[in-house]
Measured scan of single mutants.
Amino acid sequence: MASQGTKRSYEQMETDGERQNATEIRASVGKMIGGIGRFYIQMCTELKLSDYEGRLIQNSLTIERMVLSAFDERRNKYLEEHPSAGKDPKKTGGPIYRRVNGKWMRELILYDKEEIRRIWRQANNGDDATAGLTHMMIWHSNLNDATYQRTRALVRTGMDPRMCSLMQGSTLPRRSGAAGAAVKGVGTMVMELVRMIKRGINDRNFWRGENGRKTRIAYERMCNILKGKFQTAAQKAMMDQVRESRNPGNAEFEDLTFLARSALILRGSVAHKSCLPACVYGPAVASGYDFEREGYSLVGIDPFRLLQNSQVYSLIRPNENPAHKSQLVWMACHSAAFEDLRVLSFIKGTKVLPRGKLSTRGVQIASNENMETMESSTLELRSRYWAIRTRSGGNTNQQRASAGQISIQPTFSVQRNLPFDRTTIMAAFNGNTEGRTSDMRTEIIRMMESARPEDVSFQGRGVFELSDEKAASPIVPSFDMSNEGSYFFGDNAEEYDN
């Protein structure tokens, strides 16, 4: 783990906690998980779902989305002020799938948001429990990260689609708070800032007046979040320049895209947490497990152990491969979309394939898809080993990566060399080191050039047997250095459309 220093740990961010010791953190995270579980059980009762239907990941996603929508204050306010045809701002819903006479049927349900809020609060001892809501947002974000390569979004903001390893959390809503900021990748933060800068260039009043003052505060806050992700002084200094700019424009845009590229080699610290679907927490609570009393951590053995003992089902389209669908969801559960496939294969105990080789589309089923041909199958979400999630980018030494994705962002704290394609990355730096950030740029390029592919990161860190909950005997895996390590390699994943 990167030293926490003055930073709060993510469990504290996750639970809005002030400084807590490890036991208190485990208890408050457990409380959050228990609340999600209780809410899910109650919703299944309301909807009269069978046990099997309640364990269907598509039903879980609909129920999670309903509660997130019920608590989305800004959108609710907007919907009330701008009524649109056929949208009731006070209601929320989605597809629920039921097994009827041996076939899967889709039923569109509609609930009062007020009623959903009441059920959620009741499951969370009367609190709004925003930490639990954020947790579900991060699960949705991790699922998107594993399912889609955001080529269009990258290109629109002047970045290269091969930089997708920097895009963790790119679909997280803005209201996801400190826990959300911690899991956002460098590219995601750059993209958010670039969008602001572009608006400022096109709209003279963007930075002016009372609204402009708020915009400015948001801009500086985002700059500080991004600065905190960088691990070298030169990158941090460049972020200070971007933040202090009187009138952010093209120079800042250039600096930010430069920094994003540099992060492929001088990786930023991005938190990883295993956020599971509500249909995993519900049955665990129903079986009598007391998360608050037992304590829970999002970055240790607990999620692995929970998945070892969970039964989750998914709808499967006619030509999809259930094992591939399982891999997709497994990666999402562990926030591992940008991790090295060699490491993932070792931990999972079966070969993890790149996205383009998977015969599976996303987990969600569109409303126009034919239910007649839908089957369902068990998702295999178990693992051979477990490993500690990392909050750091690993040290800054790398190795060759593949054509589709030119770097990785480690999820697990496991000893290995970190793949990246130096030639491709360095070719993108057209040696432009003039301007006010020239000395920093020169320094950053120097550090990137001296990074050695064969150097090892996370020295001495290994994986653990599932029986080793105290992480007492690390097993340090050895990897084939020459092997392909990137998930979005030469990829044809669908595009994420909101």
Rank of each mutant, 00 (worst) to 15 (best):
M1P: 13
S3L: 14
K7F: 02
E14R: 02
T15K: 02
T15W: 00
G17D: 00
Q20K: 10
V29E: 05
V29R: 01
K31V: 08
F39L: 07
F39I: 11
Q42K: 11
E46D: 12
S50F: 01
E53D: 11
G54H: 01
L56F: 13
I57E: 09
A70W: 04
F71Y: 12
N76C: 01
N76G: 01
K77R: 14
E80I: 14
G86P: 06
P89H: 15
P89W: 11
P95V: 01
Y97N: 08
M105E: 08
R106C: 14
E107I: 11
I109D: 07
I109A: 01
L110Q: 11
K113A: 04
I116H: 07
I119E: 04
W120E: 04
Q122K: 14
N125W: 00
D128F: 12
D128Y: 13
A129P: 02
A131G: 15
A131S: 12
G132N: 03
M136Q: 11
I138K: 04
I138F: 12
H140V: 15
N144A: 14
N144V: 05
Y148P: 00
Q149H: 12
Q149R: 12
V155F: 09
R156E: 03
M159T: 06
D160F: 03
R162E: 03
S165N: 15
L166G: 12
L166Q: 14
M167D: 05
Q168S: 15
R175A: 07
S176R: 00
S176D: 03
A178F: 01
A178E: 07
A182I: 04
V183H: 14
M189K: 11
L193D: 02
V194P: 00
I197V: 14
K198H: 05
G200A: 12
R208S: 13
R208K: 11
E210P: 04
K214W: 05
K214Q: 10
R216Q: 13
I217G: 15
I217Q: 04
A218H: 07
A218G: 08
C223I: 10
G228R: 10
K229D: 02
A234N: 03
M239K: 11
R243L: 02
R246D: 08
G249V: 11
N250R: 04
F258H: 06
A263H: 05
L266F: 10
R267G: 10
V270F: 11
A271K: 08
P277N: 04
V280I: 15
V280D: 01
V285W: 09
V285I: 13
V285Y: 13
D290A: 12
E292L: 15
R293A: 12
R293C: 12
V299D: 11
F304Y: 05
F304W: 15
R305K: 15
Q308E: 07
N309L: 11
S310E: 02
Q311A: 03
L315W: 00
R317S: 11
A323K: 04
A323R: 12
S326C: 13
A332G: 15
A332T: 10
H334E: 00
F338M: 15
E339N: 03
D340V: 14
D340F: 02
L341G: 01
R342K: 15
L344W: 05
I347V: 15
G349M: 07
P354V: 15
S359M: 02
T360N: 11
R361P: 04
S367P: 10
M374A: 12
S376Y: 09
T378F: 00
L381Q: 12
R382K: 10
S383Y: 06
R389L: 04
G394R: 10
Q399F: 02
A401Q: 12
P410M: 03
P419E: 07
F420S: 13
M426H: 01
N430K: 07
R436Q: 02
R436T: 09
S438L: 01
R441C: 04
I445L: 14
S457P: 06
F458E: 01
S467V: 04
S473H: 12
P474W: 09
P477H: 10
D480H: 14
N483D: 12
N483C: 08
E484Y: 06
F488I: 11
F489S: 10
E494M: 14
